[in-house]
């Protein structure tokens, strides 16, 4: 079985995000970029399935500028077999990503798509679900455990209030949560081998997808600076403040 793993190039999780002075977005110039951490978990899960002999090929896909090839190389260094870069310099919204993935799935026929539940840049948490709707596959989102059976996959989901296990018929889409696994570090020998693995490049036009944005960003702003608290003299004071000022009692 072939597994498709979409990987996104995002601002590294260690970077302190700064909003551009004109409020049009966040500063990306000279900022360290890495693979979205949830996507790393997706790549790791796919590799583990392959190591267990349950998958035969892992294809990593990234949609973005030329540098997204580096993100694919990271997936290849971890253990993916080949990559597809859908090159574009435009902003790509979740719906457009889902449409592109749909087109790629039509070409590749994977048995399973494993992807991050969300990217840490826009935190949209939509692509997996939109893709499920577009292609009519079953979806298991927020996975903390994935068990592949014969023609089925059991996905344990992290939901409010606990865990829920769903059994899906393949082909299916799984989106990863934080506790699914701990991704491996790419070794230098594998980083060097990854250079020789195939990486194809295509475009949204070639796949027949219109990328024009459906959403408009009106303003991007830093979160307000936290104000200093106050000390109250007594419990009576506290209760009075909660009642009259905070309005929570």
């Amino acid at each position: 079985m072939k597994i498709l793993v979409p990987v996104k190039r995002v601002v590294d999780y260690n970077v302190k995000i700064r909003v551009r002075p004109d409020g049009s977005g966040v500063e990306l110039a000279n900022v360290k970029m890495s693979m979205n951490p949830f996507d790393e978990i997706a790549v790791e899960e796919a590799i583990r399935l392959k190591e267990k002999g349950k998958a035969t090929e892992i294809v990593a896909v990234s949609i973005g500028p030329a540098q997204s090839a580096e993100t694919i190389r990271t997936a290849l260094a971890m253990g993916a077999d080949r990559g597809i870069l859908v090159r574009t310099d435009q902003t790509v919204e979740p719906l457009a990503v889902a449409k592109i993935l749909k087109a790629i799935i039509a070409n590749e026929n994977p048995g399973l798509v494993i992807m991050g539940k969300q990217a840490i840049d826009d935190d949209a948490n939509q692509t997996g679900q939109m893709l499920g709707a577009l292609i009519g596959w079953a979806q298991g989102t927020f996975a903390s455990k994935v068990e592949l059976g014969e023609g089925t996959v059991d996905v344990t989901r992290e939901v409010d209030g606990g865990l829920q296990t769903v059994s899906l018929k393949l082909p299916a889409i799984v989106t990863t949560d934080l506790r699914l696994n701990e991704p491996r570090y790419a070794s230098l020998p594998n980083i060097m081998k990854a250079k020789k693995k195939p990486l194809d490049e295509t475009s949204a036009e070639a796949l027949g997808v219109d990328l024009s944005p459906r959403l408009k960003v009106i303003k991007t702003a830093e979160p307000p600076v936290r104000q200093a608290g106050v000390k109250v003299g007594s419990i009576a004071d506290l209760v009075a403040k909660l009642k009259n000022e905070a309005g929570v009692l």
Binding site: R73, L188, I191, K195
Partner: peptide
């Protein structure tokens, strides 16, 4: 390695 990208990739993993 003799290739800055690969060296960089390894150094950032390390």
């Amino acid at each position: 390695i003799r290739d800055p990208d690969t060296l960089q990739a390894f150094v950032s993993q390390l």
